[in-house]
Amino acid sequence: MTKATAKKVCTTLCPPVDLSGEASWTDFDAPALVGESLRFVSGEPDGNRFRVRYYRDGEQQLKARIWFGPETEGPPGHAHGGSMAAVFDEVLGLAAWAAGYSIVVGNLNVSFRNLLPLQQVVTLESRVISAEGRKIMVHGRICSGETVYAEGECLCITIVKK
């Protein structure tokens, strides 16, 4: 499917997407925490690029249910690695904010494990691993069931308030 065909198909065929989380998860209002900075990935909740909904699990770790639409296409029929990296940047950074740290992303490493089919809802699980001085380490993975599509680690740096 070419990008032009994907756009045409998506305009007429992309229905609403169920981004429901697990029963034990609670909704998380990410825009209320960080405002407009979520525009790149989360900015079009009904768009044809990404659709995202945030949750916290029982341990208060951030989870995201994400749909990669046709506008994220890289390899035919699959999400572009850059689109997956953009999602990691937003979700892992937001996980640090949700844990109480005002941060910017200093370094993001993504390891791709499997091709991610387009128009499939997946979960990004995140976990704050450590906090030492100004350095906050957050890990995550994009998965569906037992299939892991990518794993990411993010070094976040706390913002110095002047």
Rank of each mutant, 00 (worst) to 15 (best):
C143T: 03
T12Q: 14
R65S: 00
I136V: 15
R39H: 08
V87L: 15
K8S: 11
V87T: 15
G100V: 09
T11P: 00
V122Q: 01
K7C: 10
I157V: 15
Q61G: 01
L62Y: 02
I159S: 08
G100S: 04
D18A: 00
V52T: 02
K7M: 12
Q60E: 14
R49P: 01
N109H: 09
P75F: 14
V87P: 02
E146Y: 03
E73H: 05
L118V: 06
N114V: 02
E125M: 09
S144N: 09
K7V: 06
P70G: 15
L118I: 10
K162E: 14
C10I: 04
P31L: 10
E90K: 01
D27I: 06
G82S: 06
D57Y: 09
D46A: 10
G145C: 07
V128Q: 06
Q60P: 01
G106C: 09
E153F: 07
K8A: 13
S37R: 09
T5L: 15
S24I: 05
L116G: 00
K8P: 01
S111R: 10
E73I: 13
V110K: 02
S24R: 06
P15I: 04
F40Y: 13
P15F: 09
V52I: 11
K162G: 13
E90N: 02
L116A: 04
E44W: 10
E73P: 03
M1I: 07
E36P: 00
G152I: 05
K161H: 08
Q61M: 12
R56E: 12
W25E: 06
S20I: 02
G82H: 03
V41S: 00
A150E: 09
T26N: 08
